[in-house]
Design a protein around this nucleic acid. Sequence first.
RNA 1: GUGAGUGUAGCCUAGCGGUCUAAGGCACCAGGUUGUGGCCCUGGAGAUCGAGGGUUCAAAUCCCUCCACUCACCCCA
Length: 416
Amino acid sequence: MYQAARGTTDILPEEQPYWRHVEKAISDITGLYGYKRIDTPVFENTSLFQRSAGEYTDIVQKEMYTFDDRGGNSLTLKPEGTPPVCRAYIQHGMHNLPQPVRLCYLSPIFRYDRPQAGRYRQHYQFGCEAIGDEDPAIDAEIIDIAWRFNNLLGLTNLSLQLNSIGCPECRPAYLKVLKDYYKKYTGKLCADCKMRLEKNPLRLLDCKQASCQQIAQNAPRSIDGLCAACADHFKQLQKYLGLMEIPFSINHRLVRGLDYYTRTVFEIQPEDEGGQSTIGGGGRFDGLIEELGGKPTPAAGFAAGIERIILNLKKQGVSIPTQPPLQVFIVHLGEEARNEAIKLASVLHGAGISAATATGSKSLKAQLRQANTLGAKYAAIIGGDEVKAKTVTLRNMTDGQQETIGAGELAGKLTV
RNA sequence: GUGAGUGUAGCCUAGCGGUCUAAGGCACCAGGUUGUGGCCCUGGAGAUCGAGGGUUCAAAUCCCUCCACUCACCCCA
């Protein structure tokens, strides 16, 4: 028997109310902040992602779904949302628009990871990017959206972690200080951290090994190594967050896994502990547009994982609006009645009333049972008597009351 | 990529060498009402017991291999 490919999942009808709830929140929040939707292709040229994420990130090294098309071009299923949006910004000359350009997306994301709770090989991310402005008010706006989005969804007990990891001006000096500190502990580091010390020293800070955490505890802090411009930017950001009354805590060990981040980085997590806990994160990426061939252009953004949000909506027991029920299920007895039922359904659909018609020629009991199982509000019964009198018997499935009305009156009756 | 756990009908579970021609619950279908659902009662359909191989007179049950799923690590959303 075939089953969905590893790490992928069907979003079944009973799951859909959660997705609609999330989609509604996305549409509301982006409208509220003036972010315009953009949909980029599901695959891009491989080099776009190689250049943007960073050569030594896990995404590029082992998580990309890369393939050659028949023309021999290397393509990759998008492993993150930001680079394609930046590519589109450049390609369509959006630097000619008033800056910043505010864009948002809801897109499938593909990463070849070992699946586990809250982690899929195909998952969905909702993201916002504000491109073309370095004002810390933009960072604050992005964080504000991410935060309010979760409120809109009904999630509570979330924490917002914030940090600044500097810019190309000040980071090299900080990295040197950091490396010097870690070199004193080389013998005590885990194998991964020994690698990180060489390839990606920032990542040393968020190692989860207990022994490495102790070392990270007293490591030099990135915010102590910021240049004047970055320090001021971070200070302003915190002030704005304060004005908006968004609670945050500074996490000196928050660095994020992608190389393109500059200055601001942040993550949103549920308070309770859990493996794959982060439900959203982002930051500033002032160098990315230029790296991808555009003019030097500052930008900031965030992305949130929909599956993890839904996981938390369920965990927190957030009540979700349900689908409107089927208005009427049309029941018929006999060949002529069946013809009338089909005509009637057509009229109802034309009038914008949801209706389904029984199939086959089952007993009245069986048809009503089906109406009940489907959750129909009414059953419209057409039997021999009704055919003769050109009426239908309308049964309210909640209280069992029923009345006989003219066939032509049904649509009007159900509209009210 | 690493480690641990689990695979019995659509779902949940019992059985853990012979009484298994695999049991029960939910869901599904039908009947109990000649034209009336939900509750109840009765009945029905639905499983090569994840796959392949081995041990044995005998395997859902023991062994091996593979596959899948789950959880965790790495990393991320």
